[in-house]
Nucleic acid binder design. Structure first.
Lengths: 218, 218
DNA sequence: TAGTGTGAATGGATTCACAGCC
DNA sequence: GGCTGTGAATCCATTCACACTA
């Protein structure tokens, strides 16, 4: 009934796009200039048809008989995924995980720049993190102000579970449009905000479930 | 053609089971003794039918007209997911992320006990981590020996991307059956091993993709 | 009345298979 | 011969709708 205009791209396809890009960036320094859908799929455990279908949602990037130009495809995927620009990101919560995330180099490589860090602990406020010399820890009460001032559209939440919903609401109220949540709770966010949760313990739990089927090897 | 015997449970259903359990554990101290599929679904942004269907794959846990007994369902879900026991886990790689994971309390709450930690850096070997006083950092060369000796079936990989595949292979050769991988690469593992990857930068990338559709709020 | 469990219907995503191009 | 792009067919997951139970 309602057509949003986008050509109905499957969510799983977008996830795989990130994996394609990641693999291509890894092999781009190699000798091969092109890659076939079969090769790309094999590297990620997918079928060739899957790879072609995924890419075809976004355009015609390949050459029949040849494959895909690696450099070209990297550029296309970056453009599609939005990593051809710099995104300002806020990091909220400076416990063990938060500090590890602050130090993580992988974000900046993809254009995600942490331009503000927040915590509720007054004793941390005003200091600088070793890995982000140029910015000082701010109190969460400054969140809204800073989000607007620094044009922050993405936030990483690494706060305790009890605070997560409240902080998430402050983020969205301030104009944040995407939240990556590491607290082990489901967040309720407005429909125009995207939320994605990573629950470290749940990840292990899923693995444990699979193991229940098969016996130990020792 | 081949029937593995398992009643074909959708993978997404198992993921949601973890979320059901997480929510129930959070509210179990409250006054309500029961919860309906509608209430549970609402808390997680799912339909009531979805919740009922998911639970029904594993048994008949609810009472018509009443709902589900919270305590009972917690027990059932723990049993189904395998968190009603203790799992020995190895943590490999002690960079920023690895150390944060070592300190993470959430694992033990679900029965995942880190019983060995490894790194390739000789200068770290022999020391103890602040949060895991009782165990000493071992060199990766001791991986196989220790995995067998300590009956380790799950491993958390927090090593650099370049080493990830090699370490993963060492893990599976030693008998590890499940790997939670934080390195930004796709791992190839034997078919009887379960691998699950969390790429922090990819998570943000997915959020960025959604944001490309809508304009900034400022 | 409130709420589960479940077959049937629907909706999505993956795979197939092939026309067309290099 | 090798490989892409894509409709058609298949497979899988979600939603619907209702018989049934407390």
């Amino acid at each position: 009934m309602k057509d949003t205009g986008s050509e109905s791209i499957p969510e799983p396809a977008v996830k795989r796009l990130s994996l394609y890009l990641r693999h291509l960036e890894r092999i781009r320094s190699g000798s091969a200039k092109t890659i076939s859908s079969r090769e790309l799929g094999e590297a990620l455990g997918l079928t060739d048809a899957q790879v072609r279908k995924d890419l075809a949602y976004f355009g015609q990037f390949g050459q029949p008989g040849i494959g895909y130009q690696i450099e070209d495809l990297v550029g296309q995927l970056r453009r599609i995924l939005g990593t051809d620009r710099v995104w300002n990101v806020a990091l909220i919560g400076l416990g063990n995980l938060g500090r590890a995330l602050a130090a993580y180099k992988g974000f900046l490589k993809k254009g995600f720049q942490i331009v503000a860090v927040f915590d509720a602990d007054e004793s941390k406020v005003g200091r600088a993190l070793p890995e982000l010399e140029s910015i000082k820890v701010q109190h969460i009460r400054d969140l809204a102000r800073t989000v607007v001032a620094k044009r922050i559209r993405l936030a990483i939440l690494a706060v305790p579970a009890e605070m997560a919903q409240e902080v998430a609401t402050q983020c969205t109220d301030a104009g944040v449009q995407g939240i990556l949540n590491f607290a082990p709770v489901s967040l309720a966010v407005p429909s125009d905000v995207t939320e994605s949760s990573v629950d470290l313990a749940v990840q292990l739990e899923q693995l444990a479930f699979r193991l229940l089927g098969s016996p130990p090897k020792f």
